[in-house]
Each structure stands twice: as C-alpha cells, then as structure tokens.
Design a binder for these strands. Structure first.
Lengths: 335, 335
DNA sequence: TTGTAAGCGTTATCAC
DNA sequence: GTGATAACGCTTACAA
C-alpha cells in the first residue's frame, strides 16, 4: 500500500514483458486484445499510476508546464493563470505555478527551478519589469510583456489585450457623458499602462483636447490606499470631472477618496476602472470598467503554448509572434 | 544552447568522474577544494542545471509538492495557496497547483496526477465536499476539512482557523452594539460554516437569545448575487437588525441588497463579514470582518508538511493531527 | 580523495 | 505479437 507499483511488477503479474505493458499503456505498437485486457485488469487491481519522472526522463518531455506570475493573488493575473492551469490540465499537463514576487533574484530562481523540472513550456506573466531571457530555449508565452523587448524570437509568443483600445473606450465613455477634464491614474513602469495612456490621449484628441501631462497621476504601487490619497491631493489643485483608472485598485481607491471628500459619483466626477469585474461591481456605486476577457486570454495562451510544444520549433506555420485580444467596456453606475 | 548539459558532460570537461561532480553538487562525501573549484567553474560556464526528474527518479524524492484547491481564484484559499507556494519555494520545493473545481471526478484526476508526478507531499484545500482518501499514503495537510472525516491517520494533519470563535466574535460585536435580532448568511454544506454557526449561537445564548432556525439563511452558492437577493427577501418577513455573513461574497451581497432597499448601514442594520479584508474595505461603508491570518495559516501548513516529509512517517513527535489557528475581528464601519 | 557501476521506472530499438 | 535490453541523468555503495 505504501510504495507505488511499477510497470515491471505489472508485467510480472500479467506474465508478459515490460515492453508489452508499455505498449499497452501508450497504445503504441501491437498487442493482442487478450493481453491488453489482462494487463488492464492488473493495473486497475493494483492501482497502477505511471511514474512521470521516469517517463519524462526517458522521453525528455514530462507533461508539465511552468507558470511564472508576479503573485497568484492578483485578480486578473491570478484568474488567467487559473484558466491556463485548468485548460492545460484537460490536455494532460500539470502546471508548476511560481510566484516571482517583485524580486529579480527570485524571478531567476524560478526560471532555474522550471528548467530543473524539465518543463515543456513556460507561461510568463509579467508586471513591471521586462523579464530576463534566462531560458534555454523553451517555448514561452508572455502575457502583457512589451513585445519590443523580445527580439522576435522563435519559440516565443506575446499575448496581451488591446490596451490602446481599453484606454480609448474608457475615456471616450466619459467624454461622451460630458466630461472635459479627465485625469488618469497609472503606473508608468507598466507597459500596458503606457499603451492605455496612448488610447486615453487618442480619445481626448478626438474631442479636440490636448494631452496635458499634469493630468497624469503617476503611482508607484498599485494599491487602493495610494490611489485614494493621490486623488484627494490632486483634486485640490485641479477639479477633474472624470478619472480613468488603469486598474481595479486605483478605481476603488479613487472612489473611496472622492466619496470621503463629499464628491458625488457620478454626478460630480465620473470614474472608469479596469479589470476585476466582481470587485468593481461590489462598490457603491458600481464602477464602469474595461473588461479583459480572461477565458479567452487563458485559452489563447494555452493554445499557443501547446502549438509550440507540439510542433517543436514553430517553423512554417509559426503563427503570430504577437497576439492582441479585444476588450470591452462594461457600463455600470460610475459614469 | 539547446539541450541541457548533463552531469556526465561536466565530469568529462572537468576531467573527473560523475560521482565526484555529484558529491560536489550535493556537498556530500569528500573532495578537494581544487576539484570543487574547477567543477563549479565549468558548471557555471556551461549553465549546468540539475535534472530533477533524474534526481527524483533516483532518490524517489523530487522536490515538489502538490496543492489541491477548489479554485486558485478564491480570495482566502488563493492567498493561502500563494503563501504556501512561496514558503515552500524558499525551502527548495516547487509546487504543482491544481484546481479541483467542484467536480469529484476532476478531484480524483488531480490526485492521480500528483501521484504520477511523485510529489513528496500534498496540501489539500477543501471547500464543501470532504475529499476522498484517494492517496497512496502521502503526507497531506488539509485546510478546513472536517477533522472527524479522517480516521486520525498518520501522515495527515488538519489545519483550520478557529471557526467557532469567528462566529462568536462577529455576532458578539453586533450584540454589544445593540442588535437583538441577528440573522446569519451561510452555506450549510461547508464544514467551517457549521462551526461558525456554533459560535453565533453561543454568542446569542450568552445574551439569553434562543437560537432560531428561521434566522439562518441557507445559500447554496457563495455568490454576491445570491446573498443580495436572499437578504432582500428575508428582510421583508423578519426585520433583522444585524447579519452575520460567513464569507466575503455574502457580506458584499448583503450590503448591496440592504442599500438598494434604502436601509442604512450600520444605523438600521449592522453587518459583519468574513475574510477578504481588501474587498470588504472597498465597500461603502467598509465592512467589519473576521480576519483569518493568511500568512500564519500558510506557514503552519508548510511547516507541518515539511515536518512530515522530512521525518517520513511522523512516529514519535507526530505533533497534533489537528491544528486550530486563532482569528481576530477587524472593526470597520458596518457595525 | 576519487572512480566504478548498479539501479531508479520508463521508452524504444532491435530481434524473434 | 512479444521479449530482451540499452539508455535517459542522477545518487550511492563499494573499491581503489
């Protein structure tokens, strides 16, 4: 009951060779219906479970991928990781999920671990810092990395949502609702935020409003608290009538700050957030937000990875090296 | 640059035997300072990464654990899993995290996968359904499982927070604040909720209030929506002045429902929630809540697992089979 | 201090 | 249709 039973023992019990058992397990080569039945019977009876270490060692392809993520806890990233995990599991792959934290050191350690574990591919979810290309040529899908960073490599795909469109749609919604003095809450270190800013400015310019750096509130940490404080400060100088918040924490913080100031939302100031539908639905008023389609992102990542892992080097039908997924705006009560 | 370099190749390059290299890598046995230096030099130069599959196969102990979780996305569970992962990583272990979903089938598949991967231990985070003992005797730590379920097995530890105390403290806070007609929002399938209910009733009885099953609002799904709807319905029949919500979604839903009804919180009805500090801080008013100490839970789980994995079978200093971690109440504005 | 070699559980290449 | 057997990369007696 303690140690697992091996293919050899199964072979003995069934009175055949290990080779035959292996063939039956993998449905390769030839074997008679009868031996097959007998072997399966024994495997079931003894609860045989294949040893993926041995298999992986032999085939140099264990059914495992690595998922690198700044912090599983993050809502959007965590959800995507979760989707990828489930999707890959259904395809027979286990996922080693590693929190990279904010630490560069840690990130490298994670990469080494994944290599040690001989994963067949890597999903690398990235926040601020462009990741080092510390791999030895493993199929890798990045989420939200700056595509310019990677020298259009084989074996590497970048996936990201349409950030320009996100910034644009959110801002436009407020413009359409009458706002003319819209601030933006962002983390400039983040590649996605830079693109979203682009969309924000595009929307403004369509309304003949010149971009004004003074309306960009730059925050280092993506925290509710920081956003709350910042909004209160900035509002004193410049009476915004709308705020584009580039993530969920910012949106919540902004709302809290505004409410504490006695400002009415959306009557006096309007807000658009980003991500985390649930959380932003929980506030009062519920916050209008840009939705990145988590399932679609997860599936795209998984499919791209599978494609690369199965074809080996992409070669001919390498597909795109950069994939952009459309987003949408979810109207609620903050605009 | 493509395929990884092996210990054998390193040995060749350094002009020593694989045994010596292995000793140096693992710092076991004897070797001279000089060979050590030379070998390390070569390993660095060629970016040697040990193959954990081979190592694990040989030692039958790859440095990997499995984490089974209903859904990484869940706030409390996800946070705990994240903590465990980081903690174990620091100890040299990688974590295979698997979403078990709500499906019994899927859960078994996950367990088989972990066995296949030869993990050294398992963390099993459980929601509603007590898990099958589908393992082959692996060190396992359960979070929030009903301890009565497991026949006080070797190799198994149950960790949970003090649920009775949680229900008690939350309810008592509302009683102290003057409530006398307190409802409770719960999922009776969930073991932790049953214990929390116990605490709730204990608090009531201390105030001479008899338990009244009519005040228990039973919900199947832990969703914001369900809670919102339920609160509205029930309030029509019985004018609560307080609601003990046994998870964060319930608390948010309850608040939303109340607000929509024009009920003032906390003036007319008070609310206490459970978990998810961030989310419950985001609402307006911010919700008073029971805090389960995530870091402590994660560390306890990791330590217990390490203890079992390293000692092998617990034997003598087996420690407790069931560990209960204290919780606390965080006062905010909903009471 | 170092080397030789067996073996971990598989798969795959040969034979038969 | 089936069976020996080498090999995957590593650890670990046992020898030297």
């Amino acid at each position: 009951m303690d140690n697992q039973i091996s293919i050899r023992r199964i072979a003995e019990l069934a009175g055949v060779s290990v080779a035959t058992v292996s063939r039956i397990i993998n449905k390769t080569g030839r074997y008679s219906k009868e031996t097959e039945a007998r072997v399966h019977e024994i495997m079931d009876a003894y609860h045989y479970v294949p040893n993926m270490l041995a298999k992986g060692l032999r085939t140099s392809r264990n059914m495992t991928i690595g998922i690198l993520i700044p912090d599983i806890t993050g809502v959007y990233f965590g959800d995507v990781a979760s989707t990828v995990q489930s999707y890959m599991f259904a395809r027979g792959y286990a996922s080693i999920i590693l929190n990279t934290g904010r630490d560069k050191e840690q990130e490298l350690a994670c990469i080494r671990t994944l290599q040690s574990q001989q994963v067949s591919g890597v999903v690398h979810i990235v926040r601020e810092n462009p990741a080092d290309a510390g791999y030895i040529n493993l199929p890798t899908v990045y989420l939200d990395a700056d595509p310019a960073r990677e020298p259009n490599q084989e074996n590497v795909v970048n996936v990201t949502c349409d950030n320009v469109m996100g910034g644009y749609l959110g801002t436009k919604r407020m413009l359409d609702a009458g706002c003319r003095n819209i601030g933006i809450l962002m983390t400039p270190q983040n590649y996605t935020h830079v693109k979203r800013l682009e969309g924000y400015e595009k929307a403004l310019s369509e309304y003949g409003i010149a971009p004004d750096a003074g309306k960009q509130i730059h925050l280092e940490r993506m925290s509710i608290r920081a956003a709350r404080r910042a909004v209160k400060e900035y509002l004193a100088n410049d009476p915004f009538d709308g705020i584009m918040c580039l993530n969920d924490a910012f949106a919540i913080g902004a709302l809290k700050g505004l409410l504490e100031l006695g400002v009415r939302v959306p009557e006096d100031v309007k807000i658009v957030g980003y991500d985390s539908s649930d959380m932003l639905a929980a506030t009062n008023p519920a916050i209008t937000t840009i939705i990145q389609p988590i399932d679609q992102v997860g599936e795209t990542i998984a499919n791209e990875l599978l494609r690369m892992m199965e074809i080996g080097t992409p070669g001919e039908d390498a597909g795109e090296h950069s994939i952009i997924i459309p987003i949408s705006l979810l109207d609620r009560d903050s605009v």
